[in-house]
Write a protein that binds this DNA or RNA. Structure first.
Lengths: 229, 229
DNA sequence: ATTATTGATTAGCCTAATCTAATTCTAATG
DNA sequence: CATTAGAATTAGATTAGGCTAATCAATAAT
C-alpha cells in the first residue's frame, strides 16, 4: 500500500494530466502544485517510477501507469464522496469541505466509501460539479463545458463545475450563487480579461478576473436571442 | 500539532495509565502495546518528554502531562464517536469498527467530531461500553464494574464493557450475546481459570479462559438467591 | 552555430521513526 | 553485600521524505 505522500503525488499527477488532456506532467508542475521544491519532485518521480506508478523519462515528465491511475482514482472517488457527504449530511458549506476531504481520503476503507455512496444514492457528481468515479473506478462521462472566460456577452450559461481548491474563492462564488446548476447571464467581457455575470435573483452582478473565471466551467443554454441551442 | 505516531504513543500511554489506575507507564509496556522494539519506545519517551507531553524519568516510566492527556483524550473521543457512528449509521458490526476508527481518529477535525456527536445525540458510551469524553474532554463518570473473572458462581451480571481491540474475540463474544447491556448468569468458575456464563435465550453457555474474561467487565445485579443487591 | 536562459537533475545533508547489537542499570536473591 | 537475571538505555544504521547548493540539459536568441 502506497504511503499517503505517494498517494498525494499520484493524485496531483492525475489532476494535472486530466486538466491538460493527458499530457505528460513535469516535475516542476508537481513541485508547484504540492508546494515542494523541484529536487524533491524529481526524486519522488524516480521513486514512483521504480514502484511502477508512473512512466518517467528524465527531462520529460511522467504519465501515470494503470496502477498509478487506479490509486489516484480511488483517492478522487473518496475525496468527492466525502465532500458530498459532508455537505449533504453534516451541513458543511461548499467552501469548507476540501480540507477535511483531503485528509480523510487517504484513510477511509473501501467499505466506508461504499457506505457513503450508498447513503447518498450513488451520486455521480460532487457538490462542486466534479464527477465521482464509480466503485470500479470508471469516471462517469459528463459534459465538462467551457471555462467561463470562453463565453460571449449575452449568452446564458449554466454552471457545471467550480474548482474546489481555493477556499476563499469558493466562499465568494457560492455567496453569489456562482455554483453548479445555476444559470448565469454573461453581462460583459472586458478586453483586459474581466468577465461580468449576473446570477438569477441577484440585482448585483459579479465580476471575475480571468484567472478566476478559468476555475469555473459552464455550458451555454441559449444564445443572445433567447433561443435554446 | 503532534504527528500521528506521537498521537499513537500518547493514546497508548493513556490507555495503560487508565487501566492501571494512574500508575507510571514503562517503556516496555508501550513497546508491547504498540508492537515496536524497546529502544524505539525509550527513544520516543525522550521525544515525548522534550515536547512536554509526558514526564519521563529514566528507568522509571512516564506519566502524561496535562497537554499529553488532552491530546490522548481527543483521540479517545474521536475513536469512540467514530465507532458509535459506524455501528449506528453504517451498520458496522462490533468487531469491525476498531480498525476503521483507529485510522480515522487522527484525521477528523473537531468540527467533524462535533457533527458525529450531534447526529448521535451526544452519546456517553460507545458500542463496547466505553465512556466517550465530552467535547471539553471530560470523561463521563461511569461504574466500570469488575472483570468477569472476579464473580462467583450463581451471580447475575450485566455486561458493562468489552475490550475493543481483538477483532476475533469480539466476533466470538458478540455472536454469543456477550455484549454491553446483556445479563449473564455465571454458571461456574473453574479453579484453573475458566469461567462459564450463560446469556439469556441461549441454551448453550459460553466458556471463557481467564485472560479473555479479563477483557469483559460487568456488574452484579443480583445474588444467588435472586435478590437485587 | 554559439551562447544565454530556464528548467531539471545530482550531490549532500537533515529529521522522524524505526531497527539490531551492545551496554548499563535495577531489583531480587542467595 | 555481592551477584545476577531481566529491563532499559545507548550506539549506530536504515528508510522515507524533505531541503539547499551546485551542476547539467534543452531550448531560445542572437
Amino acid at each position: 500500500m502506497p504511503s499517503t505522500v505517494i498517494e498525494d503525488y499520484l493524485k496531483a499527477i492525475y489532476e494535472l494530466q486530466t486538466e491538460y488532456n493527458g499530457a505528460r506532467v513535469r516535475t516542476s508542475q508537481i513541485a508547484d502544485y504540492l508546494g515542494v521544491t523541484a529536487p524533491t519532485a524529481t526524486s519522488m518521480f524516480s521513486t514512483l517510477e521504480s514502484n511502477g506508478f508512473v512512466e518517467y523519462e528524465k527531462y520529460n515528465g511522467a504519465v501515470l501507469s494503470e496502477e498509478g491511475e487506479r490509486v489516484a482514482l480511488r483517492l478522487v472517488r473518496n475525496h468527492r464522496l466525502l465532500e458530498t457527504y459532508l455537505t449533504a449530511e453534516f451541513g458543511y458549506r461548499l467552501s469548507d469541505v476540501h480540507d477535511e476531504a483531503d485528509r480523510l481520503e487517504h484513510h477511509i476503507s473501501d467499505r466506508f466509501a461504499a457506505c457513503l455512496a450508498d447513503e447518498l444514492g450513488d451520486p455521480t457528481t460532487d457538490p462542486h460539479g466534479a464527477p465521482i468515479p464509480t466503485s470500479s473506478l470508471d469516471v462517469p462521462e459528463r459534459p465538462r463545458g467551457e471555462k467561463l472566460s470562453a463565453f460571449d456577452e449575452g449568452e446564458t450559461v449554466v454552471v457545471l463545475e467550480v474548482d474546489d481548491r481555493d477556499e476563499e474563492l469558493l466562499e465568494y462564488l457560492s455567496s453569489r450563487q456562482v455554483v453548479p446548476e445555476t444559470e448565469l447571464t454573461i453581462e460583459s467581457v472586458a478586453p483586459f480579461g474581466m468577465i461580468t455575470v449576473r446570477p438569477p435573483g441577484h440585482d448585483d452582478s459579479v465580476s471575475l478576473p480571468d484567472d478566476v473565471a478559468r476555475l469555473v466551467r459552464g455550458t451555454s443554454v441559449m444564445d443572445s436571442d433567447g433561443t435554446h441551442i
